[in-house]
Design a protein around this nucleic acid. Structure first.
Length: 404
RNA sequence: GGCGGGAUGCCCGAGUGGCCAAAGGGAGCGGCCUGUAAAGUCGCCGGCGAAUGCCUUCAGAGGUUCAAAUCCUCUUCCCGCCA
């Protein structure tokens, strides 16, 4: 085997990747000059596409741009099984209807990243649903319980006396079978997918195909800076989020994440990444500026440069100058909150969704978390004409304009 | 199939007859501070138009008791050991 200098194409394609296994295979397949079938499977288990998902998706786009075929697998069947990767709990099973709804909304967002060209979209229910018991037995015969238990997440749960459903053992096999069904040359995934991707490789070999190359990409941490970005944890940024909101969400990330986001969520050059990373470490206003830079770059990818500038300006108005955002949702004062000429605020807050209950609303009031036209209000009642048309604010970022 | 252990609020977890809307921690929320960061600090953290008041909550269904998260019976689910 000759260890030739990596081609520029290979260089680009493996950028940001965590593992490429086996790397030589990718090189040789590229040398053949035929477009590769590059598989990425996504389970529609939630409605949005996050910056976390965007990491492998943007890699898939790189392959498309290099002339390869993106084989996007919508895991409408596997979503119902539930991927146990990295989870310490059994995932709740979703219904077919839920999954269809998610698939529909995800697919739209996905196309913000992927190109229409060089794209094949497949639903894995196409081949998984018709499998019969014979097919399933053939599949399950390939793997042992010990192999499954080698996986960290399974063994942890096993040792910790937590349940592991048999159906969870099926998941890697089904995902692996997808690779057989679409004859993948390369499969992309997050680092937590390494085991699953490997199963695909094994199964392809067992079914007489050339085994796929595995490429994993780093998992982007969520805004909490601790756990991976996930919709169920609520620490995510959706790629379709409004520019202003997206910018604000990104500004709330811990400093330690600036470099990670620069690397994984922007198109910054290595030099730029090093710069913002250093700035974030310096701390102080310096770090704040670095974070702004990263936030603006992310917003620009999904909404364009102009929107990014606008979002930053809006951010300053709201959080530096403490002004209400330009666009504030309007709502009528709930009629049952009005008693003659008095308005009962807890009811207003609760019914408009600014507080989860009237009790919560009362707490917010008593703690000074509620403002009417910028003035802190602590009493629970206000005269009706003071409330009509007023700007109601809870905390720093929840606003409603009350219509008269 | 047998024996044993377990199921508590968003999560973890204490509580084994009244003092329990239920300790403690985490997460979250609000105030101050600040770079909407971190750290810090003060407060909140089941519901009900005020309550030392009422309602709902400790897997589910029944029962004992003046009184049950706590005791009894059955059911469901989880874990372990044995087969």
């Amino acid at each position: 085997m000759t260890a030739e200098a990596a081609s520029p194409e290979l260089e680009t394609l493996v950028r940001r990747a965590e593992h490429v296994i086996p790397r030589e295979d990718l090189a040789t397949r590229l040398e053949r000059g035929k477009p590769l079938r590059v598989k990425l499977g996504l389970d529609p288990t939630a409605a949005d596409v996050t910056l976390g998902w965007a990491v492998p998706l943007r890699k898939l786009r790189d392959f498309q741009d290099a002339g390869h075929l993106a084989v996007l697998i919508i895991g409408d069947f596997t979503a119902r099984v539930g991927d146990p990767s990295g989870k310490s709990e059994t995932r709740p099973q979703l219904t077919k209807e839920e999954v269809q709804g998610y698939a529909h909304s995800c697919l739209a967002s996905l196309m913000d990243i992927l190109s229409e060209d060089n794209l094949e979209v497949r639903y894995n229910s196409e081949w998984l649903e018709p499998m019969d018991m014979g097919d399933i037995l053939r599949l399950t015969a390939r793997y042992t319980v010990a192999q499954m238990l080698e996986r960290d997440d399974f063994s942890k749960r096993y040792r910790g006396n937590r349940p592991i459903s048999l159906v969870e053992f099926m998941y890697p096999l089904l995902q692996g079978y997808d690779s057989v069904a679409v004859a993948a040359d390369v499969e992309l995934g997050g680092t937590d997918q390494l085991f699953n991707l490997g199963v695909g490789r094994d199964l392809q070999r067992a079914y007489g195909q050339e085994p796929q190359v595995l490429m994993t990409l780093p998992l982007l941490e969520g805004l909490d800076g601790v756990q991976k970005m996930s919709q169920s944890l609520g620490n995510y940024v959706a790629i379709r989020e409004e520019p202003e909101v997206m910018f604000g969400q990104l500004m709330s990330m811990p400093d330690g994440l600036v470099g990670r986001y620069a690397l994984l969520a922007t198109d910054m050059t290595p030099d730029e990444i090093a710069e913002v990373e250093a700035a974030a470490r310096t701390g102080g206003p310096e770090a704040g500026r670095a974070k702004r830079r990263v936030a603006a770059r992310v917003v620009a990818i999904y909404h364009g440069r102009a929107a990014a500038l606008g979002a930053e300006a809006a951010f300053d108005r709201q959080f530096k100058d403490n002004q209400a955002p330009d666009e504030v949702p309007a709502a009528a004062i709930p009629p049952d909150a009005i008693d003659g000429v008095a308005v009962y605020l807890p009811r207003v807050l609760a019914e408009l969704g600014l507080a989860s209950s009237r009790g919560e609303a009362r707490r917010l009031l008593s703690q000074g978390g509620v403002r009417v036209n910028g003035e802190q209000v602590t009493g629970e009642e206000l005269p009706l004409d003071e409330v009509k048309g007023a700007l109601l604010q809870v905390g720093k970022r929840r606003f409603v304009r009350l219509t008269a």
